[in-house]
Amino acid sequence: MVDTMLVKRGGGLEAYDPAKLRSSLAAACKSVRAPEGEAETSAALAVARVERWLMGRPEVTTADIRRKAAEALVVYNPEAAYIYQQHKNIS
């Protein structure tokens, strides 16, 4: 289990939430018309990559997570990765 704290832009802290990350990555994939199953799978694989990077890191920033998530997602869906990187909120 990944036990990393995230430092937010304003300096506040929040615990890393894999479900939240997976949801926003899946939303990015769906926004470029990826089928739902593919979107969920891509998101899960990208989250796994991010979590491998997070191992051994007690604290990173939300900007770091966004950057690493985009790097991870580009392997599975480059278009979605671009959207994810450019947009703050996708729902």
Partner: peptide
């Protein structure tokens, strides 16, 4: 002791 990670221009996080 610990790994340093920049969290801002003038700040690092070292074991939180």
């Amino acid at each position: 002791g610990g790994a340093a990670h920049f969290i801002g221009p003038h700040q690092v996080s070292v074991e939180r």
